[in-house]
Design a protein around this nucleic acid. Structure first.
Length: 474
RNA sequence: GCCAGGGUAGCUCAGUUGGUUAGAGCACCGGAUUCAUAAACCGGCGAUCGUGGGUUCGACCCCCACCCCUGGUACCA
């Protein structure tokens, strides 16, 4: 039996189309998944759609269509983006899936309930009728009004909800995270969560009335008047997608998750709420949480009001999935906000892909063609330190190691000047270069799968020159 | 306000336990070359290391103050 590796992306809200930030996360997760497949592990990559959020209901209302139709349509946009990026989701679990996800989430609820961690309590908060949402005082302007509806007074509203005893798990969580039994990467995020945990936890509300939820979402077991609050069921997509509550065999095989990949904005839900729910239900905890940062566009945060939300699809159409993957993996730090700009993209494309990788492959292929070189069987070994960097999620450094090979090969060609030599003299030199190219192709597989495949094909059997992998842009 | 992490060449970043002229890639300029996508290779330009003090024989690296940026500071109901 191969070792299993279960990895997930975050489950995005589907109240809008995906943007370049989603592409970043998809590509990171896919790269890790592909890498583990190459290590010979049995891998499942799950993504999905958080469809039960009230945001979706409102967005559907605005669009004037049924909520279900709306989320189905948007979920497809995310799946389409993944496909266009060469990202292979083995499972895409929808939150509105009544056949599997509903009973699964209700099961989680019941397990927590059996353990005595769910209780009813009334919640009092400031409610904006216009937004149909509660706000905390900090979220309001200096007049105490919400920003969407200035001039409108907020109501103090009271509502009975089910609460989860988060406070009960404070010490256990601190221990689990401190000891890395649930490992949070990078370290500064771990510290941030620990300081949050140590500041003391309050219980959280995990249900809404039907009225507030607009009758949308997973019903609370044995209470027809309430729906499960979206975070409780959205997190459970990680389990409902692999059989929890509907296929125990499957669930047993894959759970716990070996890795959750998420953005910094939702770390609390994944580092605190999620493990607490699982502890309460007496289920195994995920092993690792990798937290990436955000992308800015032209140095600014993406926002609808600024109007700079960047759609990656046209970019993929024009330059190919691997060009976009390369930028996101090699030129965006995994642990710091990265920037995306069209100029920078073009610069990187020309310097690294066209002039670097593409040109090296072209020149070696041509020389091999001229001297009738046949490729030997590739040896498929990882570059020095690549495994180390991958273990630390340093995709940019891992790729840097591959590019080191490219530069060395280019340098060697210039020194050896194979074009001045006879076929007999040049043969060992070219064979050496072919080995290097094959090594580059193999190491590229997790990052640029399509390109790796092309090179592997070109450098097997009789080697011939071909069209440029990455045509230079003017 | 408090907590955490940052401010190093035009841009993105490296800089080990403080120690000779602070590094790399990209961009830019020049040389040389042709196997290659006017690509590769070689060389050059380019940093008072946020500011002001201090410790030390010696600090980008330690201490103090200040300025600026980012994230967190929860029933995101």
């Amino acid at each position: 039996m191969d070792k299993k590796f279960y990895i997930t992306t975050a489950i995005p809200y589907v109240n809008d189309a995906p943007h370049i930030g989603h592409a970043l996360e998809f590509v990171q997760a896919d790269t890790v998944a592909r890498y583990h497949r190459l290590l010979g592990e049995d891998v499942t990559l799950l993504s999905g759609a958080d469809e039960n959020a009230l945001k979706n209901v409102r967005a559907a209302e605005q669009a004037g269509i049924e909520t279900q139709t709306f989320v189905d349509k948007n979920a497809k946009l995310f799946q389409n983006l993944a496909e266009k990026l060469g990202v292979q989701f083995d499972i895409f679990q929808k939150g509105s899936d009544q056949e599997h996800h509903y009973p699964s989430s209700q099961k989680l609820w019941q397990l927590c309930q059996e353990n005595g961690d769910i209780y009813k309590k009334s919640y009092t908060g400031l409610y904006c009728v216009g937004c149909e949402a509660f706000y905390t005082p900090e979220e309001l302007n200096d007049k105490g009004e919400c920003f969407e509806h200035p001039g409108k007074k907020l109501e103090e509203l009271k509502e009975e909800n089910y609460f989860f005893k988060l406070s009960k798990y404070q010490d256990q969580l601190i221990n689990l995270i401190e000891s890395d039994q649930y490992k949070i990467i990078p370290e500064f995020r771990k510290k941030e969560i620990l300081s949050f945990l140590k500041s003391g936890l309050q219980d959280i509300s995990i249900s809404r009335t039907n009225e507030r939820a607009k009758n949308w979402g997973v019903p609370v077991p044995n209470d027809p008047n309430q729906r499960i609050y979206v975070w409780f069921d959205a997190l459970n997509i990680y389990q409902s997608g692999i059989g929890f509550g509907w296929d125990e065999e499957k669930y047993k095989k894959w759970w716990p998750a070996d890795l959750h990949v998420i953005g910094k904005g939702i770390i609390r839900f994944h580092a605190v709420y999620w493990p607490a729910f699982l502890l309460s239900a007496k289920l195994a905890l995920p092993k690792k949480l990798f937290v990436h940062e955000y992308l800015t566009v032209d140095g600014q945060k993406m926002s609808k009001t600024i109007g700079n939300v960047f759609d990656p699809l046209p970019l993929i159409e024009k330059y190919g999935a691997d060009s976009v993957r390369y930028y996101l993996l090699a030129r965006v730090s995994p642990f710091a906000d990265g920037n995306f700009s069209a100029e920078k993209f073009k610069e990187v494309y020309n310097a690294d892909l066209a002039n670097g990788l593409g040109n090296l492959v072209s020149r070696v292929a041509k020389l091999c063609e001229q001297h009738n070189i046949k490729a030997s069987t590739p040896s498929n070994v990882w570059c020095t330190d690549l495994e180390k960097f991958m273990g630390e999620f340093k995709f940019n450094e891992a790729i840097g190691v591959i590019w080191q090979l490219i530069h060395e090969a280019d340098k060697k060609i210039n020194e050896d000047k194979p074009w001045e030599l006879s076929t007999e003299q040049v043969k060992p030199i070219l064979e050496d270069l072919v080995n290097i190219i094959q090594a580059i192709a193999y190491n590229l597989k997790p990052f640029l799968p399509e390109t790796a495949e092309k090179i592997t094909k070109q450098f097997s059997g009789q080697i011939k020159s071909g069209p440029p992998l990455f045509p230079r842009l003017q």
